[in-house]
Design a binder for these strands. Structure first.
Lengths: 256, 256
DNA sequence: ACAAAAGTGTTCTGACTACACCCATGG
DNA sequence: CCATGGGTGTAGTCAGAACACTTTTGT
């Protein structure tokens, strides 16, 4: 007797979905001075994948991405940015898919659906991992933050998708203080700098970074943090949402 | 008796295509000191649209874009860049589509196919309009360069797609001398500057522009152009492909 | 000679870099 | 009072902006 996998739990009817089309979400988190990616693991396997899903026939693409992310990880209300659409014919490795599907008691309709060729629209989101607990759905028996720098081999072309996302934020961080989503509400200047160093993959000058960021005028200064360390305690900062929006609209970059 | 429209000419069998998915191409051209967009007009109508088409089930997405562009406009060997995927449920105006389809003698299969909801992957290309003659296919009775600044209302969300493309090159031109595809092989510094002014929608200082571009070291200097004008004749320049590639790889921008 | 446009030079400003210096805190 | 790290100042450098000056060429 094969294992049971409840494909239908979040798929009331495969007929309700657009065929050949899927959505995959890259969610970056920042903790322990490193970037992490939120990844579900296929139930009963060692296959990690991006949280993905399908688009309802009467559903806007952007909404589908938000719904899928919520269904599969519990994450809600994130700012999702469309990244790229991946459409190589061979982007899905059918062998590993077969190996996986054969392991379960899945009806032929679902089998056929799963073996389709899919073109996948990738979305990107960023979140502070401390603000929520990842929830795995019926398709995954785990949903975890894996470190970007030492990812395992993921299914299909998902490593490629993540590489694209990494490249994207490396450029984007120069135009918007990405920390607004990745860091806690209040943070020290050092932690913001460290985030930039991790994303840009290079060291930044401490003094210059501080001055440059403060001159943008998008930060609020708060009380000092008591660290208990044998040194001057740092101030805490938070993003001023209004000023931040103005800055974004201006289109001016920083850190060229 | 309804008019005949040969939908099947470039669609050997609708079954060979992925359903619900389409590709639309934005092709920019530069002439008369302005940007133009290459647009076919639906046969027997006043509906202008982007050159678009469908994806074969066994065809890579990027290849589909290139094939579609060639089939529909005759343009070949262009560098196509994926831009964005448009997926609003209401992005296609069904009313105008019906009005159009009813005009022709189209079988019900094709009718049904055409009325599907489509998610469209948009691609972008740039070309010098003097280097080729647009060819209209069986679906269009014209294929013309229309000026970007005074486009008519196009079908579906095609104006929106073009707006996105315009925005994209406005940013991109700061990182790569886009002129390499839009201008003739040999061009004057003034014409290159004009191109930049048109794309960026602002005036640039003549002296500074010249110095900055030359300092990049991606141009070859040629003989002088004899204009017959009552003034000093300008030099002609061309892009040095090798140096240009190096510059692109460096990731350094210019004109911030 | 003059007009028009190409080509080049000069100055000023402002941003970024590198590094130094002082301040606060706890051991 | 010293080690540690936060916060700020300063000098040098470089790139861009504004604009002036010179050169070429046909009328």
């Amino acid at each position: 007797m094969k294992a049971k996998l409840n494909f239908e739990h979040f798929r009331p009817d495969l007929e309700d979905y657009l065929p050949s089309l899927s959505v995959d979400c890259v969610v970056f988190g920042y903790k322990n001075e490193a970037l992490y990616v939120l990844l579900p693991r296929w139930t009963g396997s060692q296959y990690w994948s991006l949280p993905g899903g399908f688009i309802y026939k009467d559903e806007d693409l952007d909404n589908a991405a938000a719904r899928i992310l919520k269904d599969r990880t519990g994450l809600d209300n994130l700012f999702l940015k469309q990244l790229h659409t991946f459409g190589r014919t061979q982007r899905r490795n059918v062998k590993e898919l077969s190996k996986y599907l054969d392991y379960f008691d899945i009806n032929t309709t679902t089998q056929k659906w799963s073996r389709q060729r899919f073109i996948s629209v990738a979305y990107l989101a960023m979140v502070n991992p401390d603000t929520f607990v990842p929830i795995s759905d019926s398709l995954s028996d785990a949903c975890e933050w894996l470190p970007l720098s030492e990812l395992p081999q993921l299914v299909f072309d998902h490593n490629e998708i993540i590489a694209k996302a990494k490249e994207y934020i490396k450029i984007q961080i120069k135009y918007e203080p990405i920390g607004i989503s990745l860091l806690p509400d209040k943070f020290t200047m050092k932690s913001l700098q460290k985030l930039y160093e991790v994303v840009l993959e290079r060291k930044l000058d401490r003094g210059n970074f501080q001055k440059k960021v403060l001159k943008l005028g998008v930060l609020n200064k708060h009380e000092k943090l008591i660290t208990g360390g044998a040194y001057r305690s740092p101030y805490l900062y938070s993003f001023n949402k209004e000023k931040y929006q103005e800055f974004l609209k201006s289109g001016i970059g920083f850190l060229h």
